[in-house]
């Protein structure tokens, strides 16, 4: 049997979030998304279902999209995370600070332009999922976009605007790469 105090003993963790080193002291059972929201004040990642279905908590963990409600904060020790706050990234500036914004990422700009959001609850998860989709498939078809975004539930938009936004962002990113 384990010692009763083993359960609530907190652990020190160090990780990078949106390019900034962050430290925390967490109980092992603390979910990563709760650590981001409560301890770091990064409330952009939303908590919808806590069982992996809705996708609102999706962030990038070492560059790949994953559910932050299905990971413990202790498991992120040493990891490199990007949350929706990190998307609007002013080159070179640390962005872990809440309330601090840079220019919008092409995905964010496209969501704005194409009515990719209404209430905004799903938006952080949609953006991070679309980010991962475009980095694994730079020229997705509409069908592939719909399949990829089926990882996140939206109760408002009917998805059409979101799909159009991702198509537009893929174009912008492609043009930007070709311009380089």
């Amino acid at each position: 049997m384990s010692e009763p105090n083993e359960h609530s003993r907190t652990r020190a963790i160090t990780l990078r979030v949106n390019g900034t080193e962050c430290r925390g002291q967490v109980e092992p059972r603390k979910l990563l998304v709760d650590f981001l929201r409560e301890d770091l004040g990064l409330t952009g990642s939303h908590v919808g279902c806590e069982h992996g279905i809705c996708g609102a908590c999706t962030i990038l963990i070492n560059g790949e999209a994953a559910r932050s409600c299905l990971m413990l904060a202790v498991q992120a020790n040493g990891a490199e995370l990007m949350t929706v706050e990190g998307l609007a990234h002013q080159a070179g500036e640390p962005l872990a600070l809440p309330g601090k914004t840079g220019p919008l990422h092409p995905l964010q700009a496209a969501f704005w332009e194409h009515h990719g959001l209404q209430c905004g609850f799903c938006t952080p998860g949609m953006l991070m999922t679309a980010y991962d989709l475009l980095q694994t498939n730079a020229t997705p078809s509409e069908k592939e976009i719909r399949a990829g975004l089926s990882a996140v539930l939206c109760r408002c938009t009917g998805y059409q605007g979101i799909v159009e936004a991702v198509q537009a962002a893929a174009e912008t990113l492609r043009a930007r790469r070709e311009g380089e």
Binding site: M1, P28, E50, H51, L72, Q75
Partner: peptide, 21 residues
């Protein structure tokens, strides 16, 4: 990966005394 176990923990359908990650 926690993609089946974490939902069970979050919903308190499973109460392990220890997790071996």
């Amino acid at each position: 990966g926690g993609q089946s176990l974490m939902p069970l923990l979050n919903f308190r359908l499973s109460y392990p005394s220890a997790l071996i990650d």
